[in-house]
Design a binder for these strands. Structure first.
Lengths: 219, 219, 219, 219
DNA sequence: GATGAATGAGGTTTCATTCAT
DNA sequence: GATGAATGAAACCTCATTCAT
């Protein structure tokens, strides 16, 4: 986990207020990006004074990071459930894809926030965030693939960690295609259809096919 | 193609100067992102006055877009060569992967710039850029897959446009993993190794395997 | 009336500060004109930071318009009193002329500001300002002439609205002659005397004659 | 007359070029005002280089003043003709008013330029311009009134110079009402009609009445 | 005479952060 | 704890003017 980036005063605030601040912050950061987000606006929309905002967070960056933490933990909790099941890899994969599509509607802002981070320019912060965000979920991904490898559900000559990486890249970019402006356009340019107009079932099946043969390869 | 975003005075500048400005601009935008990039710094590093900079480009955004165009055209020219060959899909794929790895060293800044764009928040600009950048290359990707489909090199039940999209997503994220801070860290977290320490050959082979079975699927 | 052009924060400021800002602003705009006036200077002279200035007014133009409103409302309040009396038209006229002369010493800057506006080049703003400034006072002028017409104090074949317009033009240019550089010089060139050296009584009497019956009208 | 404000090189230029430069300059200054006019744009529109522009005029101000001279000399030439006639004052007045209306269509830019000057903020320049522009015409006005006084066409107790001043003020503001944004709006607010919609004949007659004998003067 | 590329001071505006109450 | 007025550095952009060719 990440070091906490909020002050003690924030912990003492009511849950309702904490939620409101993060929710509003996430919305602003997701909509405008880190640089263009305005901390004074966030405070106002959250119904607190800017002075209090700075009692809770030392800097804009700290608020941002805390918003990230909140958003990413929600995103990963959905994923975690799937990993906890005993399903075969292919079934898990299908569930992951479907979850990805669903997330995109419910948690659009969290995904936008995640997308924002992937273009991080401050390398120090990039490292910090990557560690915090990808750490746990990558381990689950890798473990899941490793198990599949042991079960013979995957080509034996596949490196499980790279495999996990590639797989997650596909899901991540799919997710972005639902909610992030650039990726959504990109999707349309490739497929000729807006992602929301396309039958979700088709996306799921096609992506499954794309990765499937990789899984169940037999000579 | 995109409408030109530079003024006529820029066309009249010497090639050396044009190159210098774009090079310096790309470096600044790649390093700091659009918002944090500073035109005054770009002008100074390019060895011209700020006034002249504005004789060449009407706005910071125009300079940015022109830098993008330059960077993306270089990136895609490498790719185009590969598509022009008569190789079978799998051979092309291998070449693409290797080109991707090579690009990452030579054209790191262009890739960072591309990464920057993928997190674009201004939806209008996102559309413009996507069209300009992805338009041509997506058509080549899709055509290439469509041909492979006709040749029976790919599963017959695969939608060629989605297939192309997934494939390009894999290559794009791989590219980012070489040069963009966040993705690079992500790569390390998944694989346990820095991307530059890993044997390139292994990455190529593993990614090929990942997509390969999809290609030559037979019951 | 004009829509307000200041932000809420300005309303919350102390009266003293509000006055100071407008006073300093009017002075700067009157002295240098809109383009050459410098907000930083206004802020400094008003004893506030530039940042606070922008908490009070969104743009330089908004500050300008608010200064105008203040200045014009003071100018017209003097005039309004005169219109409220039951005097005959000629008596009112005399009072107006005397008020005009008096204004010129006390409210020189407001008049300069008004003069600045009459050379407005932005036609949209010109319309807005004209409406706001001339609206109320023109109605009073016209009503006053219409009443005089009913009383038989004025030629029956006179259009009251044009009459009011001509009359106000005479007063306005007289006012400018007291405080605006160009008009003051113009006055001197015509009369051979600086307006401040001329006996005010003479100006009043001559102007009264001019409007009363310049030419020897005979039935 | 004014001291010349152009360099010798300008005198040596062809008449066509001289005319073009002044014409274009007047248009730009009339349209945008001194501050917002752009000397580089004027040069471009006049078909010469900015370098040459500075061979002709040392500063923006010099170009402006030279434009003024040109414009004002054209304006006053129309007026001069009228003064040269032997008509009675009232006839001359009518001619002046009609000329004023006509001017407004043909020489709108010159009038706008004149209007611009009347809001001059630099008191030194204001004096210079006033002297140059008003000097000759004021003398003609005054002489004309003095003659009328000798002939008994005007009240004997009227000061001819102030009379001339008031009269010219009426004509000047009328002129502005035809072409200057603010005055035009002001006219509409007073009269309820746009100046171009109003029957010109009515304006002429009403203004004549106004100056002739506004109030029912009785001996 | 003629060009137009080049300069850079200066102005408006934004917003993270502070601090007195 | 809570407020929000206040700060000021820093960024984008304009345009009169210069000068080498």
């Amino acid at each position: 986990m990440m070091e906490k980036r909020y002050k003690e005063a924030f912990e003492r605030a009511t849950d309702e207020r904490k939620q409101k601040i993060l929710e509003v912050g996430i919305e602003e950061f997701a909509a405008k990006g880190y640089e263009n987000a305005n901390i004074n606006v966030i405070a106002k929309n959250a119904g607190i004074s800017i002075g209090l905002m700075y009692k809770y967070f030392s800097t804009k960056e700290d608020l941002f990071v805390t918003c990230i933490e909140q958003g990413m933990s929600i995103l990963s909790s959905t994923i975690d459930e799937i990993f906890q099941s005993d399903d075969k890899l292919l079934v898990k994969a299908e569930k992951l894809i479907r979850a990805t599509c669903r997330q995109s509607r419910k948690n659009a802002n969290y995904i936008k926030l995640y997308n924002e981070i992937t273009a991080e320019h401050d390398s120090k912060r990039a490292m910090l965030l990557a560690q915090a965000i990808e750490g746990a979920s990558s381990r689950k991904y890798v473990k899941c693939i490793t198990d599949a490898l042991a079960n013979g559900d995957v080509r034996q000559d596949m490196d499980p960690r790279l495999f996990a990486y590639f797989l997650d890249n596909l899901l991540t970019t799919l997710q972005f295609s639902f909610v992030c402006d650039y990726y959504r356009n990109r999707f349309m340019i490739y497929t000729g259809v807006d992602v929301e107009e396309m039958n979700e079932e088709q996306i799921v099946r096609q992506l499954l096919k794309f990765i499937e043969s990789a899984f169940t390869f037999e000579k």
